[in-house]
C-alpha cells in the first residue's frame, strides 16, 4: 500500500511527516481543551482554533502527498480545505450566539456576565424579546 513513498525525496517525506504529526498533535490539544475546560465559553476556544489548524495541517500534508507523484491533486481535497476554513468560523459564531441567547452558565470567577454585551447591541434585546413573544 505504501510502496510509492520511496519515490519521494527525503525532505519532502520529512515535511509531510511533520505536517501529519503536528496536525494530529494540535487537533488532540484542541480536543483535550474541549473535554477539560470548565465552562462552555472556554470550551469553544479549543476546537474552533486548534482543531481547525490541526485538520488544516493534516489536509496540507495530504495535498503534498497526493500532489507529488501519486494520483495528482484531487479537486475534492481542495474543496474540503476551502470549505472547512470558510465554515469553521461561521459555525463557531453561530454556536457562541446560541449560547449567549440561552444564557448558558459561565464560571463564577468571570468578570461580568458574558451576555451583557449582547443585550447592549442596538436592536438585539427588542428583536429577541419580540421574537420570543411572537413564537
Amino acid at each position: 500500500m505504501m510502496d510509492g513513498s520511496m519515490a519521494l525525496p527525503f525532505w519532502l517525506d520529512a515535511l509531510i511527516a511533520l505536517l501529519l504529526l503536528g496536525g494530529a498533535l494540535v487537533a488532540l490539544l484542541g480536543s483535550i481543551g474541549l473535554a477539560r475546560m470548565p465552562d462552555f465559553y472556554m470550551r469553544l476556544h479549543g476546537p474552533t482554533k486548534a482543531s481547525t489548524l490541526g485538520v488544516g495541517a493534516t489536509l496540507l500534508g495530504s495535498m503534498i502527498w497526493f500532489g507529488v507523484g501519486h494520483e495528482g491533486l484531487s479537486v475534492q481535497e481542495i474543496l474540503i480545505t476551502v470549505f472547512l476554513f470558510a465554515t469553521a468560523p461561521v459555525s463557531a459564531h453561530m454556536m457562541a450566539r446560541a449560547a449567549l441567547h440561552r444564557r448558558v452558565a459561565c464560571r463564577e470567577r468571570t468578570h461580568g456576565e458574558p451576555w451583557d454585551e449582547m443585550d447592549r447591541l442596538p436592536g438585539y434585546a427588542e428583536s429577541s424579546s419580540s421574537s420570543d413573544s411572537q413564537r
Binding site: G30, S31, L34, F40, P47, T52, L59, S62, L84, A99
Partner: peptide, 21 residues
C-alpha cells in the same frame, strides 16, 4: 448543556474528516 453537545458533534465532524484523509 445542549450547546456543548452541538459543539462536540461539530468537532467530531471536523476530526472525522482528518481521519478519512
Amino acid at each position: 448543556d445542549i450547546i456543548d453537545r452541538i459543539l462536540g458533534l461539530d468537532t467530531l465532524n471536523v476530526n472525522a474528516i482528518a481521519v478519512i484523509v
